[in-house]
Design a protein around this nucleic acid. Sequence first.
RNA 1: GCGCCUGUAGCUCAAUUGGACAGAGCAGCGGACUUCUAAUCCGCAGGUUGGAGGUUCGAGUCCUCCCAGGCGUGCCA
Length: 611
Amino acid sequence: MRGRGGGGLSPPCPGVSGCLSCKITPGGCRRRPPATSSSSSKLKGNGRTLLIARELRGLISDAIEEATRSGEIPTSGAPDFVLERPRHKAHGDWATNAAMVLSGTTGRKPRELAEILARHLVKKACPPAGSVLREVEVAGPGFINLSLDRDRVFHELARVASEGEAYGRWDLGAARRINVEFVSANPVGPLHVGHGRWAALGDALCNLLEAVGYEVSREFYLNDYGTQMEVFAASVEARYLELAGRPCEFPPDGYQGSYVVDIAREIMDEDGGSLADEPAEVRRAKLGERAYGIALSHIRRSMEAFGVRFDVWFSERELQRDGTVRKVIDDLLERGLAYEHDGAVWMATSRFGDDKDRVLLRSNGAPTYFAADIAYHLNKMERGFDHLINIWGADHHGYVRRMQAAMEANGYPDRLEVILGQLVNLKRGGEPVRMSKRTGEMVTFDELLEEVGRDAARYLFLTRSQDTALDFDIQLAVEQSMENPVYYVQYAHARICSILRYGEGRGVELKEGAPSLDTLRLLESEEEWDLAMKLFEFEELVRDAALARAPHRLTRYLEELAAAFHVFYNRHRVISDDAELTSARLFLSRCVLQVLRNGLSLLGVSAPERM
RNA sequence: GCGCCUGUAGCUCAAUUGGACAGAGCAGCGGACUUCUAAUCCGCAGGUUGGAGGUUCGAGUCCUCCCAGGCGUGCCA
């Protein structure tokens, strides 16, 4: 599927392994029948305990197969059923629509099929024959609701603890390399708030991709060539001369922002104004270079303060200066993919799905941004990446198709994925703000970061799908109240740390491993069960969020997990006089602690031990 | 005009990619701390998913048309 990144996982994978090849290769995903007893695609784990979801899936597939073999249901191939955690508790711990799907292909009544499958499931997975399920129930139009056996759940809990930091990680990427380009602001001034959102989004997405087994490179593309750099240089030059007391005219299309004056002053502080006496051309060139260096270092500093580390800062200028851009244009001409018209060189992008052809080389001899971008993306492919992801602002969406057309024309169809992010509306106490109180100009990302802090900024940027414009309320972000979801989640983490500290103070033994099964069986309240089940959602969520390019799912999940913990905490004492029960509840709490940490770490948000 | 995105509770947003009675938070009302952090928890109330058709066992989700908002539609970047 072309274009949008937030879109689908097209088509849904039958296996639990969630094959990412549907994203990577154009052929779509291989529809193999669901695995029955194949080995887990998980990287870690002790090998004895299968991921619950995978095990359930296998059981359902087996039931279908057996029922087919025995002639109870007609043959119809392996169906693409859904296994999900139902919204309502009354619908069991997990549920599947397998019977309804089968009904579609066989024409039999869904409830009838469900009864048959349920019988097979009971026979195999419920005591006395098995110990995975406690109850199997047919409900509604033909859902099969599954309730897990308690001991099976405790084994799963033990796995959460034993995997620790690795819990939630997958090995789906087969070490394939993905290049993620994001932020990519022009180095002509401070970053704006929208850049902050791309930074948070890009970094979290990279974390997710790494978590499911890809090798990821974070890249920042610098448009440090062309008209805007010249305008920037001229603007700085004008401010510099003003500061030096030389009357000069500010360029009519120059950058008005006061930061230009700041940059000019910084340069002047360094050189004492000596450049004012240089010949105009030399002066402008030197000032332009210096100003570029300053603007770039500001950007680097902002990203560092935000905790985003780029592997590559790629300069457009280098592609221009070493002739790569020219070479790419010539090459396209030679291959008949570009042509001359009206004194300009055009690329025939319309042959590859674009609305019309696009100019590569203007009649004044200057290459367009598009030409450079083609060269840049080809360069990425030459560097050996299997897949490219770009995060662009929504205002660039008109550019997506031509870029993908260019990729296709160069033999790379479906290798470039563009994620478009909607913009950020700043608010303060519900009222829109655009201007900074301090400078009267646009609020910069640095100012925002300074005011609300890294954790709140990162988290709040990631609470919404990138498809929707984000309302960012500064006042709410700063408030350390229950209105602020960051603190809600972090508070759960700090609370558990507090319990552990309390326990240590009281000499409660904190064993490394899991308590015995008998001890864990003391966890019999509804709140404890809910909490455990919520923990198990994590790993599939990580995988799905990575595949759907949807880091915001993680924030929502963490809020749900935190909520489940807060409920548990308010109803039950973790540390009590009952040593066994204390041990069991401490263990459960530590599992929650681990998953909160793993999740927050994927978002790039800290997990404080005290608040 | 054409293309893309969005429209869900008073507000900000989810909804496991076509599944069960559309869920959270905030705002509103009423409750819970001599106990491990009350930055928490419990209860109540809140809906014709912008509108109209269609596809099917089943639609917020897919198709068509309409309405509203945002963005794009350069030999700009």
